[in-house]
Amino acid sequence: MDERRLDLSALDPARDAGRWRAVMDSTLARVDDVLLHRRQDPLALIAGWRRPLLAAAAAAVVVLVPVELLLERREARVETVRGLVAVSTAWAQEGRAPTGAELLRAMDTGSAP
């Protein structure tokens, strides 16, 4: 491999430092106009926040969905217990023992037979 660097300094923009400084200044002056517009543009401001907002929303979904599922499951268990209490009270008032099928149905639906 040829590891000897070529001397390309004849093409170096810094050779004419004044000209290159002018290119730089002119570029930044035009950029200034662009950024001024951006600072005043509410849509650009929103666009700047769009990505972090989307990321935060995605993180919230990842955390909240399992929590919601857990809460739903606990709620379902409470409903089952409430149902069993209700049917057990009914059976006690009637003075009879429930059949196996009635018990299973009560546990399954959480409601009176």
Binding site: M24, T27, L28, V31, L35, R38, A44, A47, G48
Partner: peptide
């Protein structure tokens, strides 16, 4: 990220970092 908020100094830093290379590609 700073340029997206309209920060001029950040744009200047990017220009210092890349404008010469940009010129080399254009050349």
């Amino acid at each position: 990220a700073r340029v997206r908020r309209g920060d001029r100094a950040a744009a200047g830093a990017l220009a210092e970092r890349y404008l010469r290379a940009c010129r080399a590609v254009a050349l």
